[in-house]
């Protein structure tokens, strides 16, 4: 319930992470990205990312435009920095929604078992059988383009996979006797799921969540690249790639910088996810 005193699992995880060089690298990049998200306006004003200046178009990277300018003369550095906000918002937003929905569905399936589990699993089967990009496109077609719609559509596609993993993790917890003990004490279903099951699968939730964030960032950029995510003139990495693609043969820096940020972000989050998995792995802990 309350984690006021240092719970050993978190201490151990922390120790494992700071002794893992790749994890340090990933955390450094993530910290940098978070700082960028928070202080984007201090680094460079948003207006520079959207204001057009036709006289300055296609400037190669120099001291006043670090990442150069595009065909409208917009500063690519400002666009990349402010694009971080949008990309991370899409990634974290959709992964959070998928985590909440997926955990609820997965844990409920594992806890109630029997018919409920069967019905939920069949629904998940159908849900996962639909090609996710197609469904995402269909949802956006139905709801219209925009960032909230993108987040919702991505979350919808990620939820069944999340639920599957969490169900598997919660199943092994649900069969333990302390769950029965809570029933014998008169605990409600909700309390048992929230207090007994979720804390015991928190590691799987975190790992899944992290992996989903990087995937959602990439998928969000894919949508923007296709013109279905962030709309111009909103700066977003995928959208920048799509715009830069028209002129990249002559001005390769237009796709280089947003592409680099995108790849580096996904890489860092994936490495961090791997480190989390290693950190939580009970086989490495020397105790069951």
């Amino acid at each position: 319930m309350k984690k006021t005193r240092g719970n050993s699992i978190w201490k151990e995880l922390f120790l494992r992470l700071i002794h893992n060089k790749r994890a340090i690298f990933a955390m450094a990049i993530l910290l940098l990205l978070i700082l960028i998200v928070i202080f984007a306006d201090l680094i460079i004003p948003y207006s520079k990312a959207v204001d057009q200046n036709i006289l300055d178009r296609f400037t190669r990277p120099n001291s006043s435009h670090w990442f150069g300018t595009d065909k409208y003369g917009r500063d690519q550095f400002a666009r990349t920095i402010h694009g971080t906000r949008i990309s991370l918002l899409i990634g974290f937003g959709s992964a959070t929604i998928a985590a909440i929905l997926g955990t609820t569905i997965g844990v409920a399936a594992a806890y109630f078992g029997g018919k409920v589990d069967n019905i939920i699993c069949r629904i998940l089967d159908i849900w996962m059988a639909m090609p996710s990009l197609l469904v995402t496109l269909a949802i956006i077609a139905g709801l219209g383009v925009g960032i909230p719609q993108t987040i919702f559509a991505l979350a919808f596609g990620a939820t069944p996979g999340f639920a599957r993993t969490l169900r598997a993790a919660a199943l092994s917890v649900a069969s333990q006797e302390f769950i029965e003990s809570s029933v014998a004490q008169g605990a409600s279903h909700g309390r048992i799921m929230l207090h007994d099951l979720v804390p015991n699968v928190i590691s799987q939730i975190l790992i899944q969540f992290t992996m989903n964030v990087s995937y959602m960032i990439l998928l969000g950029s894919t949508l923007s690249f296709l013109g279905l995510g962030a709309q111009p003139p909103t700066p977003e990495w995928g959208a920048m790639l799509a715009e830069g693609l028209q002129d990249y043969q002559f001005y390769p820096y237009l796709v280089m910088f947003p592409g680099m940020f995108l790849a580096l972000t996904a890489l860092a989050i994936n490495i961090f996810g791997d480190a989390l998995r290693d950190g939580f792995d009970p086989k490495l802990k020397g105790r069951a």
Binding site: M1, N7, I9, Q176, E177, F178, E180, S181, A184, Q185, D196, P199, N200, A288
Partner: peptide, 16 residues
Amino acid sequence: MQIIFQDPYSSLNPRD
């Protein structure tokens, strides 16, 4: 009415 379980490992919530 209460119950005392066989396995003192799995009958206590490891997170509490």
